[in-house]
C-alpha cells in the first residue's frame, strides 16, 4: 500500500537514535513522582517552551501561574504557585512528571495533565484521544522551566 511504502521510506531515512518515536502517553513511566527519560530524546528548546507556556491554545500555563519572567503579558493567573524559582525547587525529572501528568505528583490537582490522552470523561470530539501538548512541546516547556531560577 502506498501509505505503508511511504512510512517505511521515512523510517529508513530517519533511522538515527535521536529521531526515535516519542514515548506514547500511555507508556510514560512515573516512578515516585519522577519521569527519568526524555519523552523524545531531542533536547528541549527553551524559547519555544516560553511560547508554549503563555500561548492560550498550547500550555496556557500563565492562566494559573504568575511568571515574573513575562512582564510583557498583562494577565497572570494565581490558581497555582508562582513560577519564579521553579528550577531551584524541582529537578528536571520531577518537572517532567508534573507537566506530563501533575496528578502523579499532586493528588487531586486542578492542573491538567499535558501529556495524557485517555481516562477523561466526555472529551469534546476534536480533542478525543489527543494530548494537550506534543511530547516535544513538553520537553520544550521543561527546558524553559529550568531557566526559572531565583
Amino acid at each position: 500500500m502506498r501509505i505503508i511504502g511511504l512510512s517505511i521510506a521515512v523510517a529508513g531515512f530517519l533511522a538515527s537514535p535521536l529521531a526515535a518515536e516519542p514515548v506514547a502517553p500511555g507508556d510514560v513511566k512515573y516512578e515516585d513522582g519522577v519521569v527519568e527519560a526524555s519523552l523524545t530524546g531531542v533536547a528541549g528548546d527553551p524559547a519555544n517552551g516560553r511560547d508554549v507556556f503563555k500561548n492560550r491554545k498550547l500550555g496556557n500555563c500563565l492562566a494559573c501561574h504568575v511568571n515574573a519572567d513575562m512582564p510583557e503579558e498583562s494577565f497572570h493567573g494565581e490558581v497555582g504557585p508562582e513560577m519564579t524559582g521553579a528550577a531551584d525547587r524541582w529537578e528536571e525529572q520531577e518537572l517532567r512528571a508534573i507537566v506530563a501528568n501533575s496528578k502523579m505528583v499532586f493528588e487531586d490537582s486542578i492542573m491538567p495533565a499535558f501529556y495524557q490522552n485517555a481516562g477523561f470523561e466526555r472529551t469534546l470530539e476534536k480533542f478525543e484521544g489527543k494530548t494537550i501538548l506534543t511530547a516535544q512541546q513538553v520537553e520544550d516547556v521543561l527546558a524553559y522551566l529550568q531557566t526559572l531560577k531565583e
Binding site: F75, H76, G77, I110, P112, F120, E121, F127, I132
Partner: peptide
Amino acid sequence: RVGQLDMACSNCHEDNYDTMIRA
C-alpha cells in the same frame, strides 16, 4: 471532572473562587 482539561465545576468555583485565572 470532565473534558481533556479534566476539571469539575468545583475546581474553579468552589476551590478557587476570588482567584484570577489569567484575565
